[in-house]
Amino acid sequence: MKRSTILFSLALTFASAGAAQAATLDDIKARGSILCGVSGGLAGFAQPDDKGNWNGIDVDFCRALAAAIFNDPTKVKFLPLTAKDRFTALQSREVDLLSRNTTWTSSRDTQLGFNFAGVIYYDAQGFMVRKSAKVSSALELSNTTVCTQSGTTTQLNLADYFRSNNMKYEAVVFNTADEVIKAYESGRCDVFTTDVSQIYAERLKLAKPDEHMILPELISKEPLGPLVRHGDDQWFDIVKWTLFAMLNAEEYDISQKTLEQRLKSDRPDVKRLLGIEGNYGEQFGLTNDWIVRIIRHVGNYGEIYDRNVGEGSRLKIDRGLNKLWNKGGIQYAPPVR
């Protein structure tokens, strides 16, 4: 299903104002499913397999939300969106949230009218070149042609980087990630640039992935996270704390394997997290066992990372910054209290 910005904008002008007042959570409950805007096909983040089942870390996040609300991770409808269409889709209420490897930036948080619910993946922008080009640093990329995707922070970082290093370049800008990698493979461009995680994923699409290398320079901060519209704080809280729940669960060693055993734990913080004590959950209109549901159906942060982009996946991306704060990374969730 592919919809255009124009349609989404029409929705923004026609969609009934009455519905705009209703809380997103009530809409979701009435509808019986979450509408989750995802990437159109990015290995590790959101990609349908040959049977049409969606896989990826962004996909699993929406499943976790469905598990928390409905106790059923399948109650999600995934809408693949291009980078260009995604914001209009969220603004026009075509989706309840974007979980679409989207970088948290100031203008998106304010001017576009969104709230970022946290960071599910700390990424950075990098460059991929052909090994035959004999380049070892991004500073040698002067006078190159660079392929990139329209409407991304990538496009802007690229301009900043070459400008600040006084290097000449030509940017060829495409609409979809597929068009970008095709143009790069055909030789239209010397350089392919996007977030490093995405480079790993796109490299797998090339005929000979080994003939291409990723340069060591990382030119930007790309905190990727789920985002919702302004104007519904309850829904914003649910999305935000679902992400924190998955991080906290990993920190307290609550995984799909250890869940049953941890449910018997005496530790007060674990009891609070799992809803055995307190009313964490009812606070935002969910049940107290919502985290138990998330872990049972989807798993904790470490599990979804490993399964989709880490060692357990084809991408095998090192966890790096995405390790928990007490393991040398910067993933950190506020406490439950």
């Binding site: 923004l12 980078a83 209009t88 203008s107 409407g151 496009q155 802007l156 800008v173």
Partner: peptide
Amino acid sequence: AGTTLNNTGQAI
């Protein structure tokens, strides 16, 4: 209607 729209969010 592509890059500018996306960077500014002024769809309408």
